[in-house]
């Protein structure tokens, strides 16, 4: 992952960014709460009362975080993420996101086989027969335990349908 080489994400920038995102989340919560009445009537707080103030508190505390970032993390040279670290994260998280997308399309069993096989051969540099054995074996083991023993159906896709399983 050479593309991140030399790049550095500073802690200060990340503190500000996170503060902004949580403030936005707080605003969305407060906004969602206004639909239900945010006051206090004779039967106590209305449905929107707690969410509204929860959202408001998040916004205020997030602003506090941002302010604190200026006093504590500005120009300190603290690093949130180096290029090298980012590369490692992407190398791990990329296949994971692809795995989730594959789950939604093809079901959990096929996706886990493909994912385990790909990670073992490409990143783990295992030999193909061993990787195939482990990945297919894991899928079958999960199938037997979940579907056959405990009758908990997991997400299945077109491949299982073609094979006539469930």
């Amino acid at each position: 992952m050479r593309m991140f080489h030399g790049m550095v994400l500073s802690r200060f920038a990340m503190e500000i960014a996170t503060g902004c995102v949580t403030a936005l989340a707080g605003a969305i919560i407060s906004y969602g709460a206004t639909e239900f009445g945010t006051g206090w009537d004779d039967a106590g707080p209305q449905p929107g009362y707690f969410p509204f103030y929860i959202g408001l508190l998040i916004v205020l505390a997030s602003l506090g975080v941002v302010a604190q970032a200026f006093t504590q993390h500005r120009r300190t040279g603290q690093v949130f993420l180096t290029g090298e670290q980012a590369g490692r994260i992407v190398a791990f998280a990329g296949p994971m996101v692809a795995f989730v997308a594959l789950c939604v399309l093809l079901g959990l069993y096929v996706a886990m086989t493909v994912y385990l096989f790909a990670v073992m051969t490409i990143q783990g540099r295992f030999k193909i027969p061993l990787a195939a054995l482990v990945s297919i074996g894991t899928a079958i083991a999960f199938y037997v335990v979940m579907e056959v023993w405990f009758q908990v159906p997991l997400l299945k896709g077109p491949v299982e349908a073609m094979l006539g399983i469930y």
Binding site: C103, L108, Y115, L116, M120, Q123, G124, F126, T138, L154
Partner: peptide, 18 residues
């Protein structure tokens, strides 16, 4: 880890799905 790491990922998502 290149085996157990992905297996933990799978385990997490199976758990989430159920």
């Amino acid at each position: 880890f290149s085996i157990i790491g992905p297996v933990i990922v799978v385990v997490c998502f199976i758990g989430a799905y159920t």
